[in-house]
C-alpha cells in the first residue's frame, strides 16, 4: 500500500513490468494512457539497456543531451535563462532547441537532461494543467503543477529517465520557483541552475545575485551567466534565451546568438 492507493495514482514501472505483453497495444499504450510507458522485455532497464549497447560497438543510441539552464527570484519576479544546444554524444544534434516550455500563460518550465524525456512529460503536464482548469474553473497553482509532475517522475524513479527542470510561475498571488529532477526531488528555492554547464553558470550567478536587482540587471545577469557557461562548457551553446516571469504572466525578453554576445562582451572588456 502506498500513496498510490489513496490517490488512485498510476501504476509504477515496477507494476508494469510484471504484466509485460508484447502486443501492439502495449507497445503504444501511452497513446491512450499518457502516463504509462510500455515495459521492456527485461528487468532493470537502466542496466540492461546499457548492456545491449555494450555488446555492440556499432550501435550507439545517443539521444539528445547537455544543457545550461537557470532561474532565480528577485524583487521583480523570476528570470529564466537557457541555451539552445542539444548534443547526441560528440555530435551537436541541434543548435535551436527551445529549452523553455510554455505550459500556459502563467507557468514556464526549463528542460535539461534527456530532451525527449523532458518534452514528453512537459506535454503530459500541460494537459494535466489544462484539465485542472476545466474541472475546477481556475488556474492551477505552481505548487500543485509541480506536485503532479513530481508524482509522475517519482513513479518512474530508477528506471533511467534523465530530467532536471526549473518551473516558475504565479502561485497564490506571488511568483515562485521550483526545482524538480528525475531522482524525485521537488524543492522551492531562490536560485537554481541545472545541466552540464550549471557549475559555470553558478559562478557568475552567485557573484552577481542580489534580491534588489532591477529588471534590466536581472536579465543581464541571467544572460551573462548562460553566456559564460556556453563559453566554458562544450555541451552548451547556440542561442541564449531570457524569459521574465511575473505573477500575472511571462514575457520573452531576448534571443541572442552566443557569437553576437561574445563579440559584444569582448568589446565591452576592451573599453
Amino acid at each position: 500500500m502506498a500513496l498510490n492507493d489513496i490517490l488512485k495514482h498510476m501504476p509504477s514501472v515496477g507494476d508494469m513490468l510484471s504484466d509485460y505483453k508484447s502486443t501492439e497495444e502495449m507497445d503504444f499504450i501511452n497513446l491512450s494512457q499518457n502516463k504509462v510507458l510500455s515495459a521492456p522485455p527485461y528487468s532493470n532497464p537502466v542496466e540492461n539497456l546499457a548492456k545491449l549497447h555494450e555488446n555492440n560497438d556499432n550501435i550507439k543510441i545517443n539521444f539528445d543531451h547537455g544543457t545550461t539552464t537557470l532561474g532565480f527570484i528577485y524583487q521583480g519576479g523570476v528570470v529564466l535563462a537557457v541555451d539552445s544546444r542539444a548534443t547526441g554524444g560528440q555530435y551537436i544534434g541541434s543548435q535551436s532547441v527551445r529549452k523553455v516550455v510554455e505550459i500556459n500563460d502563467l507557468l514556464l518550465g526549463t528542460l535539461a537532461g534527456g530532451a525527449a524525456d523532458c518534452t514528453y512529460w512537459y506535454r503530459v503536464l500541460t494537459s494535466e494543467c489544462r484539465l485542472y482548469e476545466l474541472r475546477n474553473k481556475k488556474k492551477i497553482s505552481l505548487a500543485a503543477a509541480t506536485k503532479i509532475m513530481n508524482n509522475i517522475i517519482y513513479s518512474y524513479k530508477n528506471s533511467g529517465l534523465s530530467m532536471g527542470m526549473i518551473l516558475a510561475g504565479g502561485d497564490m498571488n506571488q511568483v515562485s520557483l521550483y526545482y524538480l529532477d528525475s531522482d524525485g526531488t521537488r524543492t522551492m528555492g531562490k536560485v537554481f541552475s541545472v545541466g552540464s554547464g550549471s557549475i559555470f553558470a553558478y559562478g557568475v550567478l552567485d557573484s552577481g545575485y542580489k534580491w534588489e536587482l532591477t529588471d534590466e540587471q536581472a536579465y543581464e545577469l541571467g544572460r551573462r551567466s548562460i553566456y559564460h557557461a556556453t563559453h566554458r562548457d562544450a555541451y552548451s551553446g547556440g542561442t541564449v534565451r531570457v524569459y521574465h516571469v511575473k505573477k500575472d504572466g511571462w514575457n520573452l525578453i531576448s534571443e541572442e546568438d552566443c557569437l553576437d554576445l561574445h563579440r559584444r562582451y569582448e568589446a565591452e572588456k576592451k573599453k
Binding site: 510507458l37 510500455s38 521492456p40 522485455p41 532497464p45 539497456l49 543510441i61 525527449a116 514528453y120 528506471s159
Partner: peptide, 16 residues
C-alpha cells in the same frame, strides 16, 4: 506528434 509519442512509448527499449 504521433510519431514522437509512439517512439517515446518505447522509451525503455527504443527503436534504433
Amino acid at each position: 506528434q504521433l510519431l514522437s509519442t509512439m517512439m517515446y512509448g518505447r522509451r525503455f527499449f527504443p527503436y534504433y
